Computed example of a mutant assay.
Amino acid sequence: MPIPMYTPRHLGRLGIWQMSGWSIKAYGISAQAPKREQLLQPELINEARSFVEANLARMNGTPHYSVDFVVLHHGSSAKTLLTQWWVNECVCMQYAAQSDYSGKPKFSHVKSDLMACAYELAAIDFERRAWISTVMSGKQMEEYLESWLPDGLH
C-alpha cells in the first residue's frame, strides 16, 4: 500500500460549542487549503454539531468534567469527526464517526478501530499538552478552554 507524501493541511478553530452544560472546543481540518475565509462548509459543521449533541448521553454516562474537544476533518477520502472528553482526572475518551467524502454529510459511528490520522493527531497532541499544563497543574478549567492550537498549516 503506497504512503502519500506529507503535505500540511489547514487547521483552524471552529469555536466553543455550548451544549447541555458541555463546553466543546471544536477544530476543523481541510485537505484543501481554503481560498476564502470559510475553512469548512457550514453544512458539514452543522451536521457535526448535531451528531455530537445527539451523542451527549454517551459522554454523560462517564464521570466527566463537562469539557471536550472535537476534530472535524474533511480529508482526502472521507469526512471524519472525532469527539474526545476528559474523565478520571487524566483519561481521554473518544468516539469516532465518518461521513462519505462527497455528497451531503451524514455521520455514523465507525465500526473499525480508527483512532486518528496524522493530521488529526496534531490537535489531539495539543489538547493533551493543554490539559496537563492547565487543569492538571491546578489552574482553572477556563484556562484550558482558552488554550488553542494556533490556526494555520499543520
Rank of each mutant, 00 (worst) to 15 (best):
M1T: 13
I3H: 11
R9S: 10
G12V: 01
R13D: 08
G21E: 02
Y27G: 01
Y27L: 04
Y27N: 07
I29P: 02
S30F: 03
S30E: 07
S30V: 06
A31G: 10
Q32V: 04
L39R: 08
L39W: 06
L39F: 04
P42N: 02
E43Q: 14
N46P: 04
N46W: 04
N46S: 14
A54Q: 15
R58L: 12
M59N: 07
G61A: 04
P63Q: 04
H64Y: 01
Y65E: 11
S66K: 15
D68L: 13
V71T: 15
H74C: 03
H74L: 07
G75P: 04
T80N: 14
L81K: 05
L82N: 15
E89T: 01
C90L: 11
C92E: 12
Y95P: 02
A96T: 10
S99H: 06
Y101G: 06
F107H: 00
F107Q: 06
H109R: 13
K111G: 12
K111W: 09
S112M: 01
S112G: 00
D113S: 12
L114N: 09
Y119D: 15
E120I: 02
A123W: 06
D125G: 14
R128E: 06
A130E: 07
T134W: 00
M141H: 13
E142A: 11
E143H: 12
L145S: 04
L145G: 00
E146Y: 07
S147K: 09
P150F: 04
